[in-house]
Design a protein around this nucleic acid. Structure first.
Length: 290
DNA sequence: CACTTGACCTGTCCGC
DNA sequence: TGCGGACAGGTCAAGT
């Protein structure tokens, strides 16, 4: 599911709603989603949340006294906070497109209780995970080590990305999806950015100039910032920390629009396979010519 | 070594 | 309707 804009939207919601809340109980309905021993689980109970950070597509929920919950949502993971009191407080209850009224549901894998408030980890396909880590080691350890610079990190520029991408001959799309090169890009925003700059996804990465990488980075940031403004992309499962869907796909130029006319030139969009992923492009605006 | 493919899972959609 | 197959936002390990 979630790429950088979706994970960041979840992070913002959780970082607004969770800090100060004390973890009182954990229900593991599908223990493989959160493999931990009883002693580990007991160790986190009673600790309050300090804040929520994002590393690429991963999340770190920092708790008191040096422990953190590392979370990866993979394709279909959700973290949704339900506060029973908020319905009374705001009278009207949740938005009609919200999923929170029906939780837990069959995709609920783990429930974190903060007194009367619940944080649901839902994950239809069970690819996502939660792991307990020492805060000090979270960045260097097994979970998020090796991540490249964040796509929205302002200290990264075009030449820097060009160096990181190196002289790889694999398709440019495969390089964009490699989290060790650049963290946060997934299938949707890779396709959108490649369309924006008119580069065919199968173009060997070593054919791109430094200028190309700079334009690609700028395009990635533009589509991601637009998506952040719109609450992310919801294809099927994605919802934010309050159960709300994202609206970006209404504005997508190519993703999930195969066969439909290019919004720029009218040519029917092609669907191909690149880096093992379904890939949509405009054969006219993104010629494979280098 | 660089690069690609299969596996992890459940659910949905499409064609026969 | 039913059934098989392909496909879905990500990332590893294993393969070529």
């Amino acid at each position: 599911m979630p790429e950088l804009p979706e994970v960041e939207t979840v992070r913002r919601g959780l970082d607004r709603l969770l800090p100060g809340r004390r973890l009182s109980a954990i229900d593991r309905l599908w223990p493989k989603s959160f493999p931990a021993g009883d002693s580990e689980l007991n160790a986190v109970l009673g600790r309050s949340v300090l804040g929520v950070r994002r590393l690429g597509k991963g999340l770190l929920i920092d708790l008191e006294d040096g422990l953190s919950l590392a979370v990866h949502l993979k394709m279909t993971g959700q973290l949704v906070l339900v506060d029973p009191a908020s319905q009374d407080r705001f009278g009207a209850g949740h938005p009609s497109d919200s999923l929170v009224d029906s939780l837990p549901d069959r995709s609920t894998r783990v429930v974190f209780h903060f007194g009367p408030v619940q944080l649901y980890f839902n994950d239809q396909r069970k690819f996502g995970w939660i792991k307990l880590v020492e805060t000090a080691r979270a960045l260097e350890g097994e979970f998020f080590s090796g991540l490249g610079p964040d796509t929205l990190d302002p200290s990264l520029n075009g030449p820097g990305l060009a160096v990181r991408a190196g002289k790889r001959r694999s398709p440019v799309k495969a390089v964009l999806l490699d989290q060790k090169v650049l963290a946060g890009v997934g299938n949707i925003y890779a396709d959108e950015a490649l369309f924006a700059v008119g580069i065919h996804p199968l173009t060997p990465a070593d054919r791109l100039t430094t200028e190309d990488w700079a334009r690609l980075l700028a395009a990635l940031r533009q589509v991601m910032n637009l998506s952040l403004d719109l609450g992310g992309s919801t294809n099927r499962n994605y919802v934010d920390a309050e159960g709300k869907r994202g609206a970006y796909l209404d504005f997508a130029q190519v993703y999930s629009r195969a066969g439909q006319p290019c919004r720029r030139c009218g040519t029917p969009l092609d669907k191909i396979r690149a880096a093992g992923r379904g890939t949509t492009l405009c054969p006219h605006c993104q010629p494979l010519n280098r």
